[in-house]
Amino acid sequence: MTATALYTDLSGYYDLMCADINYQAQSDTVHRIDQFFGNGGKRHLDLACGTGPHIRFLLDLGYQSAGLDLNQPMLELAQQRCPEADFSCQNMCEFQLSQPVDLITCFLYSLHYSQTIAGLTACIRQAHLALNPGGVFCFNAVDKSQIDNASVVSHQAQHANSKFIFTSGWFYPGQGELQQLRLRIEKTENDQTEVWQDAHPMVAVTFAELQQLLAPYFDVQILQHDYDKLVAWDGSAGNALFVCVKH
């Protein structure tokens, strides 16, 4: 089953799958970053927005937000959650806007859905074009050289009469520009268990390579992946926040 088909099938359960994510803390951190590094504008775009939880919090913080995603069922749920926001079904590597924005976000490591270095480069270029002068592109990323293929995260959730177990982990084969996000979803209801498994193709980069791709377009700050305080990346952690200010 492809990644798009999986998410379409389970779009109604997506928020359960992400129930352990503190969207408010992430959104508050973006707001602080934007206050410190941004141009003072309030027009915001969320790439790969899913069901729109980041957008909901940023709307409540006073932004004029929009979102794009490739998955239409996700966008329909996002529109219900954020009726005052604009949503469009677009590829983040080749999207178009009617007017520029001041802040672009892309969280849950979704920038890696660019799939190839060429796609990632195109996404970075489009983000640059879509921003007003001094605008901020903020996202999180993982360094391929730091991936532990044996490491997984898992959590459980209850929905109606069903029990869900969600498990995910990165896999990098050791060379090349492709890594995988391996996902397993187990649903049990009335002693019957269904299992979905998939390996999503994701672009693989080191942070040094990512900095090189960003440098022609942005002034880049790399921060620790910490939503309690803004601290410079320690140079060794395998995930980080990237704050990119348009030249």
Rank of each mutant, 00 (worst) to 15 (best):
K187Y: 07
D198C: 13
E189Q: 14
R182C: 02
N190T: 08
E186K: 07
K187S: 08
I185L: 15
L178P: 02
Q197H: 12
N190K: 06
R184Y: 02
E189A: 12
G176E: 04
A204L: 10
D198Q: 07
Q175W: 12
E177D: 14
D191S: 10
T188L: 12
E194R: 04
R184G: 10
E189M: 14
V203F: 08
T206Q: 11
V203G: 01
V203P: 00
T188E: 00
P201G: 03
L178W: 00
Q211K: 15
L181G: 15
N190F: 08
E209L: 02
V205Y: 14
W196N: 04
A204N: 02
M202D: 10
Q180H: 13
L210F: 03
D191W: 06
L183K: 08
Q179G: 08
A208W: 12
P201T: 09
A199P: 05
Q180Y: 09
Q175N: 11
I185K: 05
I185P: 07
V205A: 02
L210W: 03
R184V: 07
E177R: 02
P201N: 03
L181T: 03
G174H: 08
G176W: 01
A204I: 06
R182F: 09
P173R: 10
L178Y: 04
Q192E: 15
A208V: 11
R184Q: 09
V195M: 06
M202I: 10
A204H: 05
R184A: 03
A204S: 05
Q211E: 07
Q180T: 10
V195S: 02
A208K: 11
N190W: 07
L178G: 01
T193Y: 11
L181P: 13
T193N: 05
T188A: 03
Q175G: 09
I185H: 07
Q180G: 11
A208P: 02
M202Y: 01
G176P: 03
R184D: 06
R184C: 06
R184K: 14
Q192G: 05
E209T: 01
H200C: 06
N190M: 09
Q180W: 11
A199L: 05
E186M: 09
V205M: 10
Q175V: 14
E209R: 05
T206S: 15
T188I: 06
V195W: 11
E189F: 13
Q197M: 13
K187Q: 15
T193Q: 13
W196V: 15
D191K: 04
Q180V: 07
V205N: 06
Q197D: 12
P173K: 14
G176H: 09
Q211N: 10
E194C: 14
R182S: 00
L183M: 14
V205I: 09
Q211T: 15
Q192Y: 06
G176I: 12
V195D: 09
E177F: 00
G176Y: 05
D198G: 11
A204F: 09
E186H: 05
A199F: 00
T193K: 08
F207G: 11
